[in-house]
């Protein structure tokens, strides 16, 4: 089984997180300027809860996701996963904590090793954590998880380049699910998917939440998607959370002008068009 530590109700607690990136020097001897990507971010995700983070491009969403899994080193602030401070753990302890928190990345192509077969890619987190899984059980886990995201068991024998963009994102999701984590940090997990598969994957996320009590930190720029999967939503702008609350409240009565602008920008069928003239083809 999964062996989740029992009794931990808060899966993720982030407090006052600050993250700076160095930028190229403008002149050789000038100090390198820095860009503050996260500027005091605090949030929490409870077991079985799904928190969405929305915000414009460059607002720091991916940086937050990476920092939460200790893939970036912040200038200040704390991140607790399952009650443990991730920045004070030894590399080994961090690795074993990661079984409980898996990440689905924004760029499905960049996150899959092109030289490995899909079965290997999907099983990698499992192999890294549970050395004693026997070959038959391992094959069965791979088949099960591929089927749960709408792929076929025999796709395990193929390479990533043999799949379309959306199919590759499903591989990335299967890989995150294979260790039965308690928290999934998903960075734009469905933006590369077409609507029908997107609906399948979102429904899958919701099913897993009901069945296994999974919690999600769900990063998305698609407000319609957020509305379907999230309980609470945090709106990010320039590295800060400007508004947070239950989805119905934030979308129903947005208080911050930026949230209002975001909601107004959703493309809708029936709205005025950029290219209304008809064509001959």
């Amino acid at each position: 089984m999964t062996g989740n530590p029992k009794g931990v109700e808060t899966l993720l607690r982030v407090e006052g997180l600050v993250l700076d990136y160095p930028l190229p020097r403008q002149r050789l001897l000038a100090p390198a300027p820095r860009h503050r990507a996260l500027d005091g971010v605090s949030l929490q995700v409870a077991r079985g809860e799904s928190l969405a983070v929305v915000g414009e491009s460059g607002s720091g969403k991916s940086s937050l996701a990476r920092a939460v899994l200790a893939l970036e080193h912040p200038a200040a602030g704390r991140v607790e996963l399952m009650g443990q401070d991730v920045f004070s753990l030894s590399p080994k302890a961090l690795r074993s904590l990661r079984r409980h928190a898996q990440m689905v990345f924004q760029d499905p192509y960049g996150s899959l090793d092109p030289r490995r077969k899909v079965g290997w890619i999907v099983a990698e987190p499992l192999d890294a954590l549970e050395s004693g899984v026997d070959a038959a059980a391992r094959r069965a886990r791979i088949a099960e998880v591929l089927e749960s995201v709408g792929l076929k068991a025999r796709d395990a024998e193929k390479f990533p380049h043999e799949f379309s963009g959306g199919q590759r994102q499903r591989i990335a999701i299967a890989r995150a699910l294979i260790t039965h984590p308690a928290l999934i940090v998903a960075d734009e997990p469905v933006s590369a998917l077409d609507v029908s598969v997107q609906a399948q994957v979102l429904n899958l996320f919701m099913d897993l939440r009901e069945r296994l009590g999974l919690g999600y930190l769900f990063i998305s720029h698609d407000l319609a998607v957020v509305r379907h999967v999230a309980d609470r939503v945090a709106v990010m702008r320039l590295g800060e959370i400007v508004e947070e609350g239950p989805v119905e409240q934030v979308f129903g009565e947005p208080r911050h002008p930026y949230t209002q602008k975001l909601l107004a920008a959703v493309p809708r069928i029936g709205h005025p068009r950029h290219r209304p003239e008809t064509s001959t083809s």
């Binding site: 929305v54 915000g55 414009e56 491009s57 607002s59 924004q106 760029d107 734009e188 933006s191 590369a192 720029h221 698609d222 407000l223 602008k261 975001l262 920008a265 959703v266 493309p267």
Partner: peptide
Amino acid sequence: TALDVTSQA
């Protein structure tokens, strides 16, 4: 697909 709605617009 990789852009938020305001940048998308």
